[in-house]
Design a binder for these strands. Structure first.
Lengths: 243, 243
DNA sequence: CGGCACGTTGATCAATGTCAAGCAGTGTGG
DNA sequence: CCACACTGCTTGACATTGATCAACGTGCCG
């Protein structure tokens, strides 16, 4: 699904629709010009790696079209899927801002178009426009909050509760409407990737799904999900022990 | 152990020894004056809460003396210990920078002296001195890296491996010297808190400790630990499967 | 003394990982 | 077109981990 909107012969940061949704929205025209000069756009097919854990930071990646998964793995070959990035999202900024190497890998999960903004350019923009830094400061601080939330979540919830939670997040992001019942939508992930998002195995994932179907929480057919009542799903991880 | 060094009759940000070790080191004299005006110092006994999860952010806390644990808990009453803060460390900046409420609580684990820098003051300093913002940007980005590391770590390692890892971290921070064998030092935490740092129960903690003693990894007597060989401890979480 | 927090230990059980097999769908080469 | 391999998913059997519940010892403090 390349270039659904961009029949634009010349793609650039000025005409980029996504810009309103990310940090670059604070840039002046002058700075946008600089951003555009520091940009290299590339297309990736599913499975292709955009940046790799351990690599020196090349800059900030800006997703224009597609879906990108951010993975992190340890020495034993285990890995987890930390984030899903949608069009408009930026990636790789953590490494740049921390002055480190990438500590996770970015991999296209759908055909994607990604712009790389050169590290030197981003650094120049950061010193040039303090508002950009503050913007990132807010963003990274919120990310840190979410990450710490996730640590607690993983430590104290069961696989089933974590999956229920993940499902509601996916509904929020990928379902057309979450107001009608049943809510139906297409999972953007394989079973394996679903499992690695909640830190479990594909086998446990499969069993959890089967059990939740039995309990009438949701029905699964391939990647198609139907949830009769969102409320029941939410109760899986929000115990309403108000007696 | 109050005021081990500060027989200074008048405690302030200029004479504060800790300042060199945190973000405030980038401030000018003028700005330091502002910092000092926005400061309120308070002492806490073990168990006392310094800031509380869910509270509106009052500012940034600066630990001068003592030890503070940062806890996060969920609706069911489970909780984990996210960080340990030592003199010179600052706390609560995540909430301020994200523009959120505190999402964790700070609790004195030892008698502590803590300065609170008023939120408005910090915000003024941030807009006034971009270097401070960049400093925090680096800091928070590194924290985010550690948090994501921890997510992977918790998801893929056993309780024993996680505890071994925690022990090496504690050795780094609290042992006099880690070059002599055996390494000996005093744990700054109760069994319960050790457990909540790696997301397990005190019972499992106890058993893990017992088993590691049997295996000759370390000996425990109350809070006193002795580690014959650091290398063997490290191997508990760094499998050297180079065959 | 009695109560209480802390730590340990035992017994038990549920949750989850591991290993192995099988099945459906898909593409490939003969 | 078929045989084959391959991948993703599911299922079963089993082992292991770790949580839970309960009991008990120890030291501390009123």
């Amino acid at each position: 699904m390349p270039s659904s909107e961009g029949t634009s012969k010349k793609l650039n940061c000025f005409t980029c629709q996504r810009r309103e949704r990310n940090e670059w929205c604070v840039l002046s025209d002058e700075e946008l010009k600089m951003l555009d000069r520091g940009r290299v756009t590339k297309e990736y097919m599913p499975g292709e790696v955009i940046f790799h854990e351990g690599d020196a930071c090349r800059g900030v990646y800006c997703l224009e079209v597609g879906l990108v998964g951010v993975r992190k793995s340890n020495a034993d070959g285990n890995s987890i899927l930390l984030h899903l990035n949608n069009p408009g999202d930026t990636m790789g900024y953590r490494a740049l801002l921390a002055g480190e190497e990438y500590r996770a890998s970015g991999e296209a999960l759908e055909p994607s178009r990604v712009c790389l903004i050169d590290a030197a350019t981003v650094r120049t923009l950061l010193t040039h426009n303090p508002a950009l830094g503050l913007r990132y400061l807010t963003r990274v601080s919120q990310n840190l909050g979410s990450a710490e939330e996730k640590i607690l979540h993983n430590a104290t919830f069961s696989v089933r509760a974590r999956f229920a939670h993940l499902l509601t997040v996916l509904v929020d992001r990928y379902a057309e409407s979450k107001d009608e019942s049943p809510v139906e939508f297409e999972l953007p992930l394989s079973r394996h990737d679903l499992a690695s998002m909640i830190g479990t195995t594909p086998e446990s994932m499969s069993r959890t799904i089967a059990k939740m179907e039995q309990d009438g929480i949701a029905t699964f057919s391939g990647r198609r999900v139907s949830i009769p009542l969102l409320e029941t799903l939410v109760q899986e991880f929000e115990p309403e022990h108000f007696i």
